[in-house]
């Protein structure tokens, strides 16, 4: 049984359907990226998974326990960073984390050790005695993250964990997520697609409340029209001859000429049925005695896939 099982989850706000029949499972060791345009239902789904909102339909079960039937037991196993990393502004980071630790059932030395460990982990050492309202956005986010990982939860749910952080801070948070990934279930929402490549082992895309794609980042990238296309620049030939020769290779579907300078001609080549073209191209180049200036295989870009999928969805509704 998967650690997190989400079945047919629905949520309505009046006539508006925020989440529409969303189902997916997440296993231990997976880092699931939850993608979607703003207002697609990412946060609403996470709020239901963490037991904040009650679903209008469907079930969420964590480690075999239903969240609506056994909320306290399930909440114990979850660490949650809500959107915007809310915390009590008048508390210091230290007293805030002490409070969370106590609610999480930690006491005495164990509590002290865990709070200190977590503070070190998210690099809060310098600011623990400052009221949270005086902290910068990056530190506030880290306090929120510390609060979520304090009790070493089996399931970690992070709503936009790197939103508003600078590139260095983003890198730190991602490193932290990767470090914890092996023995946990991590679900994180984001609309930064590079983040999916950087930390996620799997990504689901949600648009207008519906689940529209589910796969590894590589699988999703393969859906891009650019996937496996090749940029090629040749020296020692002219455009027409090269184009004619390239078109004869049967794995190449289309040849687009891109740039032409004095000695170099450029092409963008698209494969037939996603088949690899590089071997055939280099063989041809050898036979024709062309010099290859540039040869680059495109993996496809996640943001293109994202745009294609979510735009389709929106035009349907």
């Amino acid at each position: 049984m998967a650690m997190v099982e989400i079945k047919n989850l629905c949520k309505h706000y009046g006539p508006f359907t925020a989440v529409d029949n969303v189902s997916f499972d997440v296993e231990r060791g997976e880092v699931l990226g939850f993608l979607g345009p703003n207002g697609a239902g990412k946060s609403t789904t996470m709020k239901m998974v963490t037991g904040f909102l009650t679903p209008d339909g469907g079930t969420v079960s964590i480690g075999g326990h239903d969240i609506t039937k056994n909320p306290v037991a399930v909440k114990k196993r979850i660490g949650y960073l809500p959107e915007g990393a809310p915390a009590y502004p008048d508390m210091t980071a230290q007293t805030f984390l002490d409070f969370i630790a106590e609610v999480r059932g930690l006491t005495g030395n164990e509590k002290r050790r865990r709070v200190e460990e977590t503070i070190n982990k998210v690099n809060l050492e310098g600011v623990v005695y400052q009221p949270i309202e005086t902290l910068s956005k990056g530190f506030k986010r880290r306090v929120g993250l510390a609060q979520a990982i304090l009790h070493d939860p089996e399931v970690l749910i992070l709503d936009e964990p790197t939103d508003g952080l600078d590139p260095n801070q983003k890198h730190e948070v991602r490193a932290l997520i990767k470090e914890m990934a092996a023995e946990k279930v991590i679900i994180l929402s984001t609309h930064i697609l590079e983040e999916v490549d950087a930390v996620c082992t799997r990504a689901v895309i949600i648009a207008a409340g519906k689940l529209v794609a589910d796969g590894t980042p590589t699988e999703l990238e393969a859906r891009s029209p650019q996937h496996n296309s090749v940029t090629l620049a040749l020296r020692g030939t002219d455009k027409k001859t090269a184009e004619r020769a390239l078109k004869k290779i049967d794995v190449i579907k289309t040849v687009e000429s891109t740039a032409e300078t004095e000695n170099v001609v450029g092409f963008r080549l698209y494969p037939r049925a996603n088949r690899p073209m590089v071997a055939a191209i280099s063989q041809l180049a050898q036979e024709q005695k062309w010099q290859i200036e540039e040869l680059h295989v495109h993996k496809g870009r996640l943001d293109e896939v994202f745009r294609t999928i979510t735009a389709n969805q929106q035009s349907l509704t």
Binding site: G51, F52, P71, V72, K75, P82, V103, R104
Partner: peptide
């Protein structure tokens, strides 16, 4: 207003 209600109500308490 501050969103801490979400934090409070996702902690393991009734």
């Amino acid at each position: 207003k501050s969103g801490t209600i979400e934090l409070l109500l996702t902690l393991p308490m009734t």
